[in-house]
């Protein structure tokens, strides 16, 4: 009988196991908000790039290039993106003022978001521009599949371009994507 009691005592230990009340519904309040930073386009242009190679005249409508921009095709990003911040840094050694225009286009070539920098003054070696795109205000931006950048001489500039001038117009950009899931 004594041993029966001992055994019973041990099994009683198993039976008295308990657990505090847990609330798994708290997981519904989980807020996941990564911020991803990536490089975008970069390039370097010279005075010659803005001069007609035959006549030497200034190219008044500027220089542009375009690339596919497929980041926003990612469904997770499309569904949860809150904000995009585009940062632009320019080092302008050329004795001319410029502006840069950035256009986001959809698959049909329709411009769905555009912004331009303020005047990038000559000899401004540390020009910065930040464009904040709130998705709630610009929901169509997530349809962007192409980006076009146009760099144009500013009309406010009177200094003539000098052929074969090695001065550079150096353009850098990055995108910061603010994501939030619930």
């Amino acid at each position: 009988m004594k041993h029966f009691k001992t055994g019973f005592l041990f099994f009683l230990i198993f039976l008295v196991a308990c657990s505090e009340q847990l609330d798994f519904n708290q997981a519904e309040g989980f807020n996941h908000s990564p911020v991803i930073q990536t490089s975008l386009a970069y390039f370097t242009l010279f005075p010659n790039d803005f001069m007609d190679s035959v006549t030497g005249a200034e190219i008044l409508n500027g220089r542009s290039d375009i690339s596919d921009f497929r980041i926003l095709e990612n469904s997770f990003l499309r569904d949860n993106l809150q904000k995009i911040v585009i940062d632009i840094e320019v080092k302008n050694e050329i004795m001319k003022n410029f502006t840069a225009l950035v256009e986001f286009l959809d698959d049909n070539g329709t411009i769905i978001y555009t912004f331009s920098t303020s005047i990038i003054s000559s000899q401004n070696l540390a020009f910065i521009h930040q464009e904040i795109i709130q998705i709630s205000s610009n929901p169509t931006i997530v349809n962007a599949t192409k980006v076009r950048i146009l760099v144009a001489l500013s009309s406010s500039s009177s200094n003539p371009l000098i052929e074969n001038d090695p001065s550079e117009f150096e353009f850098k950009s990055s995108g910061t994507y603010f994501i939030e899931t619930e």
């Binding site: 490089s39 386009a41 970069y42 390039f43 242009l45």
Partner: peptide, 9 residues
């Protein structure tokens, strides 16, 4: 990866 290097060509 440094980004897309536009060549304007």
């Amino acid at each position: 990866f440094e980004g897309v290097n536009f060549l304007f060509d």
